[in-house]
Amino acid sequence: MFELIGIPPQALFGQLLLGLINGSFYALLSLGLAVIFGMLNVINFAHGALYMLGAFVAWFLLEYAGIGYWGALILAPVVVGLVGIVIEKTMLQRLYKLDHLYGLLFTFGIALILEGAFKHEFGVSGQSYATPALLKGGTNLGFMFLPFYRGWVVVLSILVCLATWYAIEKTRLGSYLRAATENPRLVQAFGINVPVMITLTYGVGVALAGLAGVMAAPIYSVNPLMGSHLIIVVFAVVVIGGMGSIFGAVVSGYMLGLLEGLTKVFLPEASNIVVFVIMVVVLLLRPAGLFGRER
């Protein structure tokens, strides 16, 4: 059996698969960020906090309403989406006329409020959320033990990313959306209610974060701080993919997950930094990101 720089190939496959699973979360989150950015020109700093909210809603549903994982998978994103719509309608909307940076700062404030409130109410130790009974256990792939649930995460996230991409690129609604991104006034003149469309886009974007939160709940501890560590990495992913490029966000999400997985084998100490190093290199070579257009 050959070895690759001291690492047996089975271990390598195993790590790559794990990287793909982490990449699924990056992809889902950066997808939501890209959708929101494309339409609103706002970088949603609250994305990490809303991801956390998604996980907590799943936990609430189980704890107080007896609704399990499968129900939460539908309900929690809806709840998070509604929260997003309320935020957009009541506050964020007023900032579009101003510099985009105010959107970033506003959502940063929202993130602090959500995180602080949950820390205050539920402490920082986190809550435990059990893996759904149907997906308990795992299978031995020969090179690694794959828990069923992790396999499900990869499949579901790929499906959701494909569906979102299809909805935006191939449907009529998606074409309105893209048109409104380019020229909102013209689209408005065609009788399409652009403000409502913007609100819904924000709702859908954060619902994606909520969905990622539900998916994360059985793997990670459900914790008020779970989003704040992730959000900066996801920012870097979006920058690497090219801001506003949905395809770029998804592809670079999975890619960076894989790369991070590799670093965890070869140079584990650096696995937190690798994403940022790649970001710097990409920016120096292609300032607009891998799949972005120069604006």
Binding site: N22, L230, K264, E269, A270, S271
Partner: peptide, 20 residues
């Protein structure tokens, strides 16, 4: 032994190395 970055949400890679 393996050193993981602090903080890490996903420790499965390191656990897998320990398992192996």
């Amino acid at each position: 032994s393996v050193r993981h970055p602090f903080p890490s949400a996903d420790l499965s890679s390191f656990l897998l190395q320990a398992q192996a």
